[in-house]
Design a protein around this nucleic acid. Structure first.
Lengths: 198, 198, 198, 198
DNA sequence: AATGAATGAGCCTTCATTCAT
DNA sequence: AATGAATGAAGGCTCATTCAT
């Protein structure tokens, strides 16, 4: 009986390596060689487990998205009150983990990837859908019950704001500042909901 | 007789071709061959005029940024009142020209490029600085004069919002909707400034 | 208890799989993976039993040749008269089994293999020698006894004719037509021996 | 103005090199590297001119077929009488040029190629069609005019015989013997037509 | 000014083969 | 007996870039 159960280990290593290398290069111009070397295996094995470069990218993207999703879910679990839930989502979006150089690189490039690779777009759609749903749920109790669509529209605004702030933090010269990012979205929320909207 | 003044013509053709091809590919995975072919010349000539692929990208980026700057300036020239100036900037940011498929592709990829190529980052910084300055000028009369920094902070918020909304319009499935984008930022402004803030 | 006598079973499966895959590919561009998968085992086991790809090819060739030899022998056993024996050989050469897509592929490629791999050439020589011997025996009573070498020369002619007709049937567009092939060689024999040469 | 008109020269060199290397390897297991090296250029240039390996093979095949066709045509031009024309075709088929090691290798492998690559099959069909047409024309005056189809059937027989004899000469151990090959087909013709059929 | 010619470097991918278990 | 794991070695192909004309 041969060495068994390597597949998940190898795959995980490759996913990590892919994210890392994308972050290092700052773009998708990353070779399978680089990824495999960092993951400590031959390119042949990398192909064996993933079948191709694109699928490594997709797996990496899925991983980043999953982590983010888990972070949001975790934050929501302990959050109290509608406003608390709202802030929890925002904070999770700007957590240190999401600002790690590699992860930033990954996000930036996934946006590009989504324009070309259908599966990448699908993943992004899922992520945006979930974010919107979470935000809408949290917002509904805070906006007048009469305005049925208000929560959804606001959720879109917050979502866009999150992306825009993230993008700017990601592109600015120095180290990203998660707290400032949160503050900026918070100010937006305060303006929209009224500052006392606890 | 040798043709005189070919250089600017050729360069312009190459810049257009570069933008077009980036838009077509949806990424920077564009070959010099493709660009040169679309520009109607040999790759050798393309290199002769630009010295390399990266500099073609940068020239294309410079061009897009210049066009955008001109659009903003033009809109500001005829805008009336602080609020009018504010809206002019927002509208210019979401003008049809900025949502042409190629231009969207260009922007997306310039963001990626900026993480790797210093000159690209510089260009992006200049653009963001100008936008911030324009927004701050327009906002100052609208926010209480007492709050010295309020205008600047708000300008950052609007800037982020513009980027975020643009990103989402760029990535969504159907055709981008400039009017909806404007409306979204406008709602943000209304909330921050009060809807009557003419 | 360890399974006993797996070796011949595994080897037979691999030989079948090899022939099948060669036929499917239409060439020797067949991977050990494909063969092993079709044979229902790992590539490692395939190597274990045969030591290498080339030896799988040779075993497959040997198998095809053996089958053909058995077919000829069987046909000769029940054939009556010299002319009957002759026709038996021809018919066996163009039997449906020999025109199965995989077998045709095998033959075609063995010819190529024979130019490179000595053992393949040896096998082909043995086959041709046996065919010639069979044909000569059958022809001797039919040609004037005086012409000592006539039978041998004629056997060569018939042999070449068989190969040529087989090649053409193998390469032609539609399904091979064994009966037509037999008829063609028969016409040749009739011309050489006189049509009444029973 | 650059060095001009290299294309036909390079292509010719590549075709020669392809044939040579196929002959040397005895199979289609030939790398573009080998071909390009023998042709004295980089693999990149080889790809530039032919677009891919398969097209090099096809060009080589086309070349061999063209040469053979020219040989037949030349021989027919000076042949006298129906029988003379017949023999001219046979002799051309077994000319020294067709038995050069590389050419033999090429033929053998084209047969294999024809089973996989449609264009290769097409080329082979054209060749066989032309051969059949030439043979039929030459045979018609020699067979009784009454038997309309006799010439065609005989042409098929002669064609198969030519292929079969060629195959055997190609595969046999020593140097191919063109004269013997001609003699063998001639004997077939004599038997079919009567030896006096001048 | 312009380009056909040419290439070195490199990338993704495949595959026969080996090894530890 | 059997196989998952692993890789070295290549192979086909692409591309940015250079050069001679």
């Amino acid at each position: 009986m041969p060495k068994l159960g390597m597949e998940p280990i190898r795959k995980a290593a490759l996913v990590q390596a892919t994210i890392h290398e994308i972050g290092r290069a700052g773009s998708l111009d990353v070779t399978v060689s680089q990824i495999a070397r960092r993951a400590g295996m031959s390119t042949a094995l990398a192909h064996h487990y993933f079948g191709g470069k694109e699928q490594m990218f997709l797996a990496a993207m899925r991983h980043v998205l999953t982590l983010y999703g888990a972070e949001v879910r975790g934050a929501l679990a302990t959050a109290e009150g509608p406003r608390g839930r709202l802030l929890a989502i925002v904070r999770a979006s700007f957590s240190p983990g999401n600002f790690r150089r590699e992860v930033v690189g990954a996000w930036l490039n996934f946006w590009v990837l989504a324009r070309t690779v259908p599966e990448a777009r699908r993943l992004l759609d899922v992520y945006q859908g979930r974010l919107r749903s979470n935000l809408t749920h949290a917002l509904r109790p805070l906006v007048g019950t009469g305005a049925g669509e208000r929560a959804g529209a606001l959720a879109d605004g917050v979502g866009a704001m999150i992306d825009g702030v993230y993008l700017r933090e990601a592109l600015k010269a120095g180290a990203p500042d998660g707290a400032a990012a949160v503050a900026m979205v918070r100010a937006y929320l305060d303006a929209e909901l009224g500052e006392s909207g606890a």
